[in-house]
């Protein structure tokens, strides 16, 4: 375990060095992403100014939600930046590199890139959490702990979901379109008040598109402690992590290396 931590830290350091080569673009991308998030949130400010609340969710819940989701996305795609490029890496034979070095392939591949725009997400998320705490008017150190845990769960489920979807590349070749659809779906649904959904739709958000584990569930848990929710969060993370790892390594056996050999018809 310790040796893997040292290795991943070295990777992150190398990513940072690589990003430093392009400091300016790093900062503009970061600022761009923050602005992007802020504009999106304005929509919800207008929405809740009119409706006050939706089945029990109010603007403060939305602030907590944006806090967890943006931080989770930011941290996830910063530390495991290749999670959004896995399909490309597989289809274009770039997994060769990770396969020729003596480390776990999935971890190595995921952690080998840091997205600059992720830092913007992360900063926005922390601001949103700060605002949520301020308007909720209640804060204690346990809330900070719950926030940390919530973000960790969001990162885990998000990355696992992205890995799962893109592992399909091993079976059916490049899945660019599927990947970007899945990515958009998970972003969109994790930023909705979950109380808008019920029945089948809600079930979907806990299974096929596990947005509930990335957004609503951890956000509610951060606002107030609930043992059942804690259990759900932990179980959800563990299950998705296991599934992703299992499916990825299953697929890896079928990896065909430089398969720029697809025939498009």
């Amino acid at each position: 375990m310790g040796r893997h931590i040292a290795f991943v830290l070295a990777l992150w350091k190398t990513n940072l060095l690589s990003a430093m080569e392009y400091r300016v673009s790093f900062l503009t991308q970061m600022a761009g992403m923050m602005l992007n998030n802020a504009i999106y949130f304005v929509f919800w400010i207008i929405f809740f100014a009119r409706f006050e609340e939706v089945n029990g969710w109010d603007l403060v819940d939305m602030l907590f939600l944006f806090g967890v989701v943006a931080t989770g996305f930011g941290v996830g795609t910063y530390l495991f930046g290749n999670a959004v490029r896995l399909s490309l890496l597989i289809a274009s034979g770039q997994m060769d590199y990770y396969l020729s070095l003596p480390r776990p392939v999935l971890l190595h591949a995921l952690a080998s890139r840091s997205n600059a725009s992720s830092a913007g997400d992360c900063a926005y998320g922390l601001l949103s959490f700060g605002a949520a705490v301020y308007f909720a008017g209640a804060f204690d150190i346990l809330m900070l702990l719950r926030f940390g845990l919530g973000c960790l769960a969001a990162v885990t489920v998000l990355i696992s979901f992205l890995v799962l979807v893109q592992s399909l590349t091993f079976w059916i070749g490049n899945t660019n379109l599927l990947t970007s659809n899945a990515f958009n779906a998970i972003v969109t649904f994790s930023l909705y008040p979950i109380t808008l959904f019920d029945g089948t739709a809600k079930l979907l958000l806990f299974t096929l598109i596990p947005a509930a584990f990335i957004g609503a569930l951890p956000a509610e848990f951060v606002r107030r402690f609930d043992l059942a929710q804690l259990a759900q969060i932990c179980a959800g993370s563990a299950i998705f992590l296991f599934l992703a790892t299992f499916v990825f390594y299953r697929g890896l056996r079928r990896y065909e290396s430089g398969s720029a050999f697809q025939v498009r018809t």
């Binding site: 059916i172 070749g173 379109l177 065909e256 398969s259 050999f261 697809q262 025939v263 498009r264 018809t265």
Partner: peptide, 9 residues
């Protein structure tokens, strides 16, 4: 090698 053939989209 299995050459995959798939339609676009």
């Amino acid at each position: 090698f299995q050459l995959k053939q798939k339609a676009a989209g």
